[in-house]
Amino acid sequence: MRRRVYVWEVPVRLTHWVNVLSITMLSFTGYYIANPYIFVSPREPWGIYFMGTMRFLHFVFAYVFVASLLLRTYWAFVGNQWASWRGLFPFLTKEGRTNMWHAIQYYFFLRRNPPEVAGHNALAGTSYMIIVFLYGLSVFTGFTLYGQLHPASIWHTLTDWVTALVSIQTLRLWHHIIMYLILAFVVHHVYAAWLIDMEEGNGLMSSIFSGYKFLPKDQQPDWIEQVIAQNGKQNGKALQAAKAETRKVQVAGGKVES
């Protein structure tokens, strides 16, 4: 039997799916704004506001996306160990580097088993670091362009200095290219999740809906748990995890069931 561990808390799952929705909508409307390919009846004299609607949706989901990123950022500092900001920087710790090397070996067929983790493996964490950076850059370039449209808005006040350094066209190009990078990440992300779900059989795919993973009873604390255990505290709270040596591991922040 496996034990059921509560890994992904509600804000983590919520922001994940809000991100999915907003990235889908932002990519679709954003591509239309860059290249309005959908044919609008030329003889329609009234009642059509197609590009206007696309831009409105783009701006609405931009705000939704930013709200989601803010909530997730907040949760990176108050959530459990698998939601921690430390998960983005595995290369800073010895455990993280070891785990990352293990994952690289697995992906290149140099080692049979993927690294056992309750949360993300270290290689995945690194890819999220890159993707979070791209999110930030996309939001920043997006709101800089948005501010140019509304010279009286706070976005113009906050971002107009950028246009003196970087051409608006260059910002537009970055904003456009980041969409493709994020879409490429989405393809990789879904594939890797499917692969590891298949290999480990721990309910990884369903965990982003339910929050629970089904871990082997004797699975040891993963790299992020070890890192946080060494720090003694997780987000200001005393760690409740049992020691790594213990055979029956009580995973911090997670309900342990058998």
């Binding site: 496996r2 049979r112 056992e116 298949m198 290999e199 480990e200 059989g201 721990n202």
Partner: peptide, 15 residues
């Protein structure tokens, strides 16, 4: 996975 099934615990047969 077909040639060398995963040997961890009780999972890994799905692939």
């Amino acid at each position: 996975a077909r040639m060398q099934p995963i040997a961890a615990h009780d999972g890994g047969e799905t692939l």
